[in-house]
Design a protein around this nucleic acid. Structure first.
Length: 363
DNA sequence: GTATGCTTTCGGC
DNA sequence: TTACGGCCGAAAGCATAC
């Protein structure tokens, strides 16, 4: 089953101050550039009625909620993380196997616990919903299915406070009318490509010849699409290791293409990223930078080292090289800049050959 | 040509 | 009419190996 906490950040705010819960609640990331510059992180369902949703400018949200009873709050990530942690502990206790997937959702393998009985799974889900409500005063939406793929899609069908069960014999009729984009791995380009083949729904995809899919999308993707469309997914519910990447991004006070200004900010971001790396004793092999230009487009550059490191000065040095490169490749000014590391190898020390091998074997 | 890994962009929350 | 964050993993694009 998949448990998804409803409009999580905004619901946390409602829980902290129940007097706002019959108003529009908009949780915002303020950039600090001007009084109201920034974007909406998430909004409760009352605000969504007026078209306020994740990612839109704060200014635009204010306009939509003009003369409505609305509350605008800054994100309080620390608070949400604490709530999330408590709820994840509750959820973990109900599962044979558990996998957190982001701050507000988790997969629970409960097949042993309910002996493969979907009615019992439904009762368990109701119990879980009750407990989260009692302990943390929050609602969630739960999807139950024979595998992760179905559970995830099922959880999306009814929300907030939903519960959707898809039994094995219902999988086909459940999936077949849904658009192909609901499948993980089917993005904009693939949707377009499939549309040209007259594949619009998951049902269309399931009927399509697998050999043809393999010719069109490659062996691994083709086979995956074929199986996914038939509701087949044998991915296990598994606890995740550490994060795959760590990044920091920041909006500049003013747009600029002055390298000195950019690098001053970048150095600071490097230090913050490095601090998190040290906390988790991680070394990295890949260093990336992000630049959002005046026209709000994103550009990135990255470099993969021959051997992993956790050294702050090497990080800064590579980041400097990458920014020098990227600034030479555009005429536009930077609005936001970021630093990202990935391709982790566990360990504090500077690594030599033996761990290089582990790094390769891991991939 | 296909598979694999690396780089860049996209998109959800 | 415009307006616009920060973070992550997934998808797409590309280079190289086989």
């Amino acid at each position: 089953m998949l448990v998804d906490l409803d409009y999580f950040f905004a619901q946390c705010e409602e829980m902290r101050n129940s007097s706002i819960k019959d108003k529009s609640v908009v949780v915002c990331v303020y950039s600090g550039r001007s009084e109201e510059s920034g974007a909406v992180s998430t909004a409760n369902y009352i605000a969504r009625e007026y078209g306020v949703k994740s990612g839109i400018p704060i200014y635009s949200a204010k306009k939509k909620l003009e003369d409505k009873d609305a509350v605008f709050l800054p994100v309080d990530h620390k608070f949400y993380s604490e709530i999330s942690k408590k709820i994840m502990t509750i959820l973990r206790s109900y599962a044979d196997r558990f996998q957190q997937a982001g701050i507000d959702e988790a997969y629970l393998d409960v097949s042993q616990k309910v002996k493969g009985n979907f009615e019992e799974a439904k009762e368990l889900a109701q119990k879980i919903k009750k407990e989260i409500k009692a302990q943390q005063k929050l609602t969630c939406s739960i999807g139950i299915g024979p595998n992760k793929l179905i559970a995830k899609i099922a959880a999306d069908v009814q929300k907030p406070d939903g519960l959707t069960i898809v039994k094995p014999e219902e999988v086909e009729s459940f999936l077949s009318p849904l658009p192909v984009k609901r499948l993980i791995g089917v993005g904009r380009k693939t949707v377009k490509k499939m549309e040209n083949l007259e594949i619009k729904t998951i049902g269309d995809l399931a009927k399509y010849d697998m050999q043809k899919l393999i010719t069109l999308f490659g062996k691994s993707m083709g086979a995956y699409f074929h199986n996914a469309a038939m509701g087949i997914d044998d991915n296990l519910v598994q606890e995740r290791g550490e994060a795959e990447s760590i990044s920091r991004i920041h909006t500049l006070h003013e747009n600029t293409r002055d390298l000195k200004v950019i690098l001053e900010e970048a150095d600071h971001l490097c230090e913050e990223v490095h601090e998190r790396l040290v906390k988790q004793s991680l070394s990295f092999k890949t260093i990336g930078i992000i630049m959002i230009t005046t026209d709000l487009n994103m550009r990135t550059r990255s470099k993969t080292l021959k051997s992993p490191t956790n050294d702050l000065e090497s990080l800064k040095k590579t980041v400097k090289e990458l920014f020098e490169k990227i600034i030479n490749e555009t005429e536009l000014e930077a609005r936001r800049v970021g630093v990202k590391v990935s391709n982790f190898v566990k360990g504090k020390r500077r690594q030599k050959q033996i761990t290089d091998f582990i790094g390769i074997a891991k991939n």
